[in-house]
Design a protein around this nucleic acid. Structure first.
Length: 566
RNA sequence: GUACCUGUAGCUCAGCAGGAUAGAGCAUUCGCCUUCUAAGCGAACGGCCGGGGGUUCGAAUCCCUCCAGGUACGCCA
């Protein structure tokens, strides 16, 4: 239920001559301070029309105000402060979430429309870094959010599985590689070969030419080159999948860069047909002066295509294949220029749907103030971070709850949860400097804090010896104390939170909801006895159950697992 | 040089579709386990909201400008 809407309607009976319900709705605000009630209406704006001072207006409105869900209206200066009827609302909210469970907050807003999400996109033969974590978990969380909003998300892992670097890699493998070593430890070994290539290149610049020729062979379908490439790809993907499993992420498509290899001629032809392709310094470009942008380089002097050519092909392919409502690209903020150009070229081509393409930018991670780079070896491997997190979680369990049965499993859920939650709890645009101790934190505003809170809630239900069916009666659960009320209001606010997360493509909004709810519940937990014999026992149990459901759903949306005990 | 992003407590960040005394977490100090998991709760300490100007009844929030940091700007992706 949307009590803001109800109050806006109730106010409208007095104000309809001056303000629409929508305007009233937008003026209503949640007071920062709980002493100012549950909802407030500032009367400043009415001062002009009524030609009275706002305080008087507020007082006049209050005199004639009545609403079924409002207990009391306070006038404080120019503000009307509404105090809602806690009993009615808590009963309604609890009933709703307990009935709907994981479906609580679902909408059909998206009407099943497709939204491909370009995400993760690691490079074959290179390890996944913390940078890939960001794209992966943000993309995954957005997919969950979109699905809950009624859309059909399509998670696409746009693998970096093509390009001149594979010529270099094949060269390195032919010179220094050993099959057994690669089989034993594919990505580490291949990456080492790649790094070595760049080291040797300093001494032997002609290696560059060898690399180029191997890539040429690969492009021409040379048997040896193709087999090596396919092998590298397969081994890499197998290793990636281990990480994806740990993160609980799966994909609907792994069409990477190589997939579009034979689809780029069409793009070039289309651009030619439309007269957009011009020669400039031997290269083929699309001019974008009208957009205040540098020309987009479609073909190099040597005729080879480029990043943007491939992305154009991918954009066209996705539009045709999915007829998307929106197309999202979860890619770092360092590629803003690229996507601006991409959209501009599509606009030039006359595709109005370029407006539906959204670059979901995220901030970059640096190490010691330096940008991460595989080439310079300045990179933090995702797997190492997950491992370390799980180890620390296990240590924590041994201290706090040594008798826990499935320690390993829980340590993995808590450790990985900490890493994922840490990534998702801040505005995705924020850059951050890598700091393991900060990421693998178990106290305060963290993933484990939310998980722990839910485990405590479940523990109460377990002690009460009840299960979900206990709540399926026609009983009415109502609570009026302040601790419960704060919890109820947070559960009630989930819909608008979800809506905002969708509108801003911002998973952190959900993470904050989880944290605030966990906080509110822990206060409730510390101050309100549930299991003692008391007249509100049933309602309190219902609240505990509702919190467990809500936290689980918040965490699920973020892609974080929720252990029942920890 | 141009464009974009960022600048809020010692640190990490909320708040920014303008509103009532600027909020969390971490760190520091102190308190709370014979009662539902102390990975918890409470208290204290901590702020020219980068500087300056403007719009407004009202600005951390909007506009301008300056300063500082980051990123990107044609043959990598």
């Amino acid at each position: 239920m949307d009590f803001k809407q109800i109050i806006a309607e109730d106010l409208s009976t007095q104000l309809s001559e001056h303000l629409t319900i929508n305007e009233i709705y937008n003026l209503l605000e949640k007071p920062k301070n709980t002493e100012h009630g549950d909802l407030a209406f500032p009367a400043f704006q009415l001062a002009k029309v009524f030609r009275k001072n706002p305080a008087e207006i507020a007082s006049d409105i209050a005199d004639d105000f009545s609403s079924d869900i409002v207990d009391k209206v306070d006038v404080v200066g120019p503000y009307l402060n509404f105090y809602l009827n806690k009993g009615t609302i808590s009963a309604e909210v609890l009933k709703e979430i307990i009935t709907e469970k994981g479906d609580y907050g679902n909408t059909d807003f998206g009407a099943g429309k497709n939204i491909p999400i370009d995400m993760s996109s690691p490079n074959i033969a290179k390890p996944m870094s913390m940078g890939h974590l960001r794209s992966t978990v943000i993309g995954n969380a957005l997919a969950n959010i979109l699905e809950k909003m009624g859309f059909q998300p399509i998670k696409i892992n746009y693998l970096g599985d093509w390009g001149t670097q594979f010529g270099r890699l094949i060269t390195a493998y032919k010179l220094w590689g050993e099959e057994e070593k690669v089989r034993a430890n594919p990505i580490a070994e291949l990456n080492e070969l790649y790094v070595r290539f760049h080291e040797e290149l300093e001494k032997e610049p002609e290696l560059e030419e060898v690399g180029r020729s191997w890539f040429k062979k690969l492009e021409n379908g040379d048997k040896e080159a193709t087999e090596l490439w396919r092998w590298f790809r397969e081994e890499s993907l197998n290793e990636f999948n281990i990480v994806y499993d740990r993160l609980g992420v799966s994909f609907d498509s792994t069409n990477g860069e190589s997939f579009y290899n034979d689809k780029m001629d069409e793009v070039v032809e289309l651009l030619e047909e439309k007269g957009l392709l011009v020669e400039d310094q031997g290269a083929q470009v699309v001019r974008l002066e009208d957009y205040d942008l540098q020309p987009a380089l479609i073909k190099k002097q040597d005729g080879a295509t480029l990043y943007i050519t491939r992305d154009l092909a991918a954009a066209l392919y996705r539009k045709r294949t999915y007829d998307f409502d929106q197309s999202l690209y979860v890619v770092g903020q360092d590629q803003i220029y690229h996507f601006t150009q991409l959209k501009a070229v599509l606009a030039e081509m006359g595709y109005e749907w370029e407006a539906d393409i959204h670059h979901i930018i995220f901030g970059l991670i640096s190490i010691d103030g330096q940008k991460m780079s595989t080439r310079r070896g300045k990179v933090v491997l995702l797997e190492d971070v997950l491992d370390e997190a799980a180890v620390r979680a296990e240590k924590q369990i041994n201290e706090k709850n040594p008798n826990l049965e499935n320690k390993d499993e829980v340590a993995e859920q808590v450790g990985v949860g900490a890493v994922v939650f840490h990534d998702l709890q801040h505005d995705r645009r924020n850059d951050f400097n890598f700091n393991l101790d900060e990421i693998v934190q178990f106290e305060g505003e963290t993933g484990p804090y939310v998980q722990y809170t839910r485990a405590r809630a479940l523990s109460i239900l377990k002690k009460a010896n009840i299960d979900a069916s206990y709540f399926e009666s026609e009983k009415e659960f109502a609570l009026t104390d302040d601790y419960s009320w704060t919890v109820i209001k947070l559960i009630q606010s989930f819909s608008s939170t979800l809506e905002r997360a969708y509108r801003e493509y911002e998973p952190s909004v959900i993470a904050k909801h989880a944290l605030r709810l966990a906080q509110a519940f822990n206060r409730f937990y510390a101050n309100v006895r549930v299991l003692d014999e008391n007249p509100e026992r049933e309602s309190r149990l219902a609240l505990v159950y509702a919190v467990a459901l809500m936290l689980e759903e918040d965490l699920r949306l973020l892609g974080v697992q929720a252990p029942d005990e920890m």
